[in-house]
Amino acid sequence: MLNSQSSVPEIIIPDELLPPKDLRLSVGGSFKAIGTEFFRYFIELGGLQPDEAVLDVGCGVGRMAVPLTQYLSDRGSYEGFDIVEPGITWCQSVISPRYPNFQFQRADLYNQYYNPTGQEQANTYRFPYSDHSFDFVFLTSVFTHILPEGIENYLREIFRVLKPGGRALITAFLLNKESLSCLETGMSTLELTEIFENYRLADKTFPESAVAYEECFFITLAEQVGLKVNFPVYYGSWCGREDFLSVQDILLMSKG
């Protein structure tokens, strides 16, 4: 559980930083509630400081970026990339002019649903940033939609762009004794019926819709690229467990 005496500053999100309703609905869930929830995790779990350089992998329509505009100082910076063009365009036209230290890029990555004409693949994609660029990297609802080869590549890229001592906060669906028991007893609303070595899918014809990984396999991949997994793992409610922090499982990692 998080500290009940939180040191996270209270923030107020300006109305002009709320995307149009259609863009908010396109990412699911509450724009404000989920954004401010993870804002708290970035600080309390990840130790994010106002003057640090931040990378948001899969930034969507700026749900995580908007709260950070009220926290990062002029000495801090934010970079985000995503594959969905309308969301990136909105962020570039609304957030960046008001906060020049917040920048957004579109990545032309293939995704069966979001970008079926994408020219690049997750398993070979190189993040468009130099080595050792960021103090803090986060990925929310990204690794739940990427297959194993892409996961390994993204972990390697996270390690590359992190500064020594940098941290990463990553969400995932992790398969372990507890979550598998919940799945087998029908407690989860997420059906992962397609079983492969080290991972499961909700739909074999649409593999990116939902992917869950064996926890040991996922942690081993991270360690093999040089990342240190900082325990405990903060398990989520996705599988139907009663004791949880968020919806997805949250892992913290660090570099050197």
Score class of each variant (00 low, 15 high):
Ser188Cys: 11
Ile13Lys: 02
Phe218Pro: 03
Glu157Tyr: 01
Asn101Met: 08
Thr89Leu: 12
Gln112Tyr: 08
Gly60Val: 04
Arg167Lys: 15
Cys182Trp: 00
Lys177Leu: 07
Phe39Trp: 04
Ile11Gln: 03
Asp131Gly: 04
Gly80Asp: 03
Val54Pro: 00
Ser179Tyr: 02
Glu149Gln: 14
Ser6Trp: 01
Asp56Glu: 07
Thr193Gly: 07
Ala107Thr: 13
Tyr114Glu: 08
Leu45Glu: 04
Ile219Met: 13
Ser246Phe: 02
Thr144Val: 12
Val84Gln: 11
Glu149Leu: 14
Leu2Phe: 10
Ser209Thr: 11
Ser6Cys: 05
Pro207Tyr: 08
Val142Arg: 08
Arg167Glu: 05
Ala33Arg: 14
Asn153Pro: 00
Phe138Met: 14
Tyr71Cys: 05
Ala172Trp: 00
Tyr125Ile: 13
Arg160Leu: 11
Arg156Asn: 14
Asp56His: 02
Leu201Glu: 06
Thr117Phe: 10
Thr140Arg: 12
Met64Lys: 00
Lys163Ala: 05
Leu72Arg: 03
Gln112Met: 12
Ile13Glu: 02
Lys228Ile: 14
Gly28Pro: 00
Leu169Ala: 05
Gln103Trp: 00
Glu191Asp: 13
Pro19Met: 12
Gly186Ile: 12
Ala172Thr: 07
Gly165Val: 11
Gly47Glu: 05
Glu10Tyr: 09
Glu120Trp: 01
Ile151Tyr: 00
Gly236Gln: 04
Gly58Leu: 06
Glu242Arg: 13
Tyr154Thr: 15
Asp15Ser: 14
Ser181Cys: 04
Lys228Arg: 14
Pro100Met: 11
Pro148Arg: 11
Phe231Leu: 13
Ser6His: 03
Pro100Gln: 09
Gln248Tyr: 03
Asn111His: 15
Met1Phe: 04
Val142Tyr: 02
Phe196Tyr: 15
Leu252Val: 13
Leu252Trp: 00
Tyr78Val: 12
Gly236Leu: 08
Ser130Tyr: 04
Phe102Tyr: 08
Met1Arg: 08
Phe81Cys: 11
Leu175Asn: 07
Ser179Cys: 06
Pro86Thr: 09
Ser4His: 07
Leu48Ile: 14
Tyr235Ala: 03
Glu120Ser: 12
Ser141Phe: 04
Pro14Leu: 02
Ile43Gly: 09
Pro67Asp: 06
Gln105Tyr: 01
Tyr234Ser: 11
Phe159Val: 08
Pro207Ser: 06
Pro128Arg: 05
Leu174Arg: 06
Thr185Met: 07
Gln224Cys: 03
Leu227Ile: 07
Leu68Asp: 01
Phe39Ile: 13
Glu194Asp: 15
Val57Gly: 01
Asp131Phe: 03
Gly47Ser: 12
Phe231Gln: 13
Ile170Thr: 10
Gln49Ala: 14
Tyr110Thr: 06
Phe104Pro: 05
Leu174Gln: 10
Gly226His: 02
Val61Asn: 12
Pro86Tyr: 07
Phe217Ile: 02
Leu48Phe: 09
Phe218Asp: 06
Gly256Tyr: 07
Thr69Pro: 02
Leu2Asn: 10
Ala212Lys: 04
Phe196Val: 07
Gln224Val: 00
Gln70Val: 01
